[in-house]
Amino acid sequence: MELLDKIEEYWTGRAEGYSQVNQGELATEQREKWKKNLMSHLKGKKPEETKVLDIGTGPGFFAIILAEAGYQVTAVDYTEEMLKEAKQNAGKLAGKIHWQQMDAQNLAFASETFDVVVSRNLTWNLEKPEKAYGEWIRVLKKGGILLNYDANWYHHLFDQEKRRAYEEDRARVEELQLSDHYTCTDIDAMEEIAREVPLSRIARPTWDKQVLGQFSPNQVLVEEEVWKEVWSEEEKANYQSTPMFLIIVEK
């Protein structure tokens, strides 16, 4: 089976469970935390005049928040089941969001179509992340902004120090009697994919800055402590060894 097919099969199986995670975020203070963070980077852009592309929307979390705030949202995902969950989660907002099944590495949009491109926890899981970044910048209008939230997911498979920290996370979660976000999934299948995708082996966000610098004449910014603003206490316990960062590119 080709890697892209493996990735699609895995996330098809995860769609319902991942959707429940997003539903929990939408029903708690996480919704406002994320909305506040997103809005802080979109100041000066009138929602009704701003076209946003949510890449790898999954069960629709970003798309729903942004559509609710009045932005013109297009949401894409490679997995059909994820889009079904997203539409259901969006409820009455579903009709205001343009949904499309699409490969993040091969976007079927004209160049300079969107004012904003957003993504969360996707880049690490791509077969050709450098190509994806080129596509994301291509579809951005001049003056547009890319917001990419991600982390060094599964880097512990290739780094002994990270592995020790990962095991400490698992022990902490057990001690606090919290849900373990790793063992609640098909961890064997995910680790098999993680060993094949390139970014599991690479220390980020240094790599991201270097690659995006090739596509954008402007400075690539990184917020390495964004996790403190947007994660729940349970997420902080689960992922202390893998802090989320934010990549910001203005075209």
Score class of each variant (00 low, 15 high):
residue 168 E to Y: 09
residue 138 R to H: 06
residue 160 Q to P: 06
residue 138 R to D: 09
residue 95 G to Q: 10
residue 149 Y to D: 03
residue 162 K to T: 05
residue 99 W to Q: 02
residue 154 Y to K: 03
residue 108 A to Q: 15
residue 117 V to M: 06
residue 89 N to W: 04
residue 143 G to Q: 04
residue 101 Q to R: 15
residue 149 Y to E: 04
residue 117 V to S: 11
residue 123 T to E: 09
residue 134 G to W: 02
residue 172 R to D: 06
residue 93 L to D: 11
residue 146 L to G: 14
residue 116 V to T: 07
residue 119 S to I: 02
residue 126 L to Y: 12
residue 176 L to K: 13
residue 134 G to E: 07
residue 140 L to P: 01
residue 94 A to E: 13
residue 141 K to S: 06
residue 90 A to G: 09
residue 116 V to W: 01
residue 109 F to P: 04
residue 171 A to I: 10
residue 183 T to C: 07
residue 163 R to G: 03
residue 168 E to A: 11
residue 96 K to D: 13
residue 163 R to C: 05
residue 107 L to Q: 06
residue 107 L to E: 03
residue 168 E to S: 10
residue 101 Q to E: 12
residue 94 A to S: 15
residue 178 L to Q: 08
residue 124 W to R: 03
residue 140 L to R: 04
residue 161 E to M: 05
residue 167 E to M: 13
residue 129 P to E: 06
residue 143 G to A: 09
residue 158 F to Q: 07
residue 119 S to F: 09
residue 138 R to C: 08
residue 178 L to G: 05
residue 171 A to H: 12
residue 130 E to C: 05
residue 113 T to H: 05
residue 96 K to L: 10
residue 152 N to T: 03
residue 90 A to D: 07
residue 86 A to C: 11
residue 167 E to P: 02
residue 171 A to V: 11
residue 157 L to G: 04
residue 137 I to H: 12
residue 98 H to M: 11
residue 88 Q to L: 14
residue 150 D to G: 10
residue 179 S to H: 11
residue 176 L to N: 08
residue 163 R to Y: 14
residue 181 H to W: 15
residue 150 D to I: 09
residue 89 N to F: 05
residue 153 W to A: 10
residue 168 E to N: 14
residue 124 W to N: 02
residue 159 D to M: 07
residue 96 K to P: 00
residue 156 H to Y: 15
residue 148 N to S: 15
residue 92 K to L: 08
residue 132 A to D: 07
residue 138 R to P: 03
residue 86 A to E: 07
residue 112 E to T: 12
residue 176 L to C: 03
residue 91 G to Y: 07
residue 170 R to W: 07
residue 172 R to H: 09
residue 93 L to P: 10
residue 101 Q to A: 06
residue 165 A to S: 13
residue 159 D to G: 09
residue 124 W to H: 07
residue 135 E to T: 01
residue 166 Y to G: 05
residue 133 Y to T: 01
residue 175 E to P: 03
residue 101 Q to D: 00
residue 96 K to E: 14
residue 114 F to C: 05
residue 112 E to L: 07
residue 139 V to T: 02
residue 122 L to S: 04
residue 166 Y to D: 02
residue 115 D to H: 09
residue 86 A to P: 07
residue 132 A to I: 04
residue 183 T to M: 09
residue 97 I to M: 08
residue 95 G to C: 10
residue 156 H to A: 05
residue 114 F to Q: 01
residue 101 Q to V: 00
residue 107 L to Y: 01
residue 181 H to E: 15
residue 100 Q to G: 09
residue 92 K to T: 10
residue 153 W to G: 08
residue 133 Y to K: 00
residue 93 L to R: 14
residue 92 K to V: 08
residue 149 Y to W: 11
residue 104 A to W: 00
residue 136 W to M: 10
residue 163 R to N: 13
residue 94 A to Q: 12
residue 107 L to W: 01
residue 175 E to R: 12
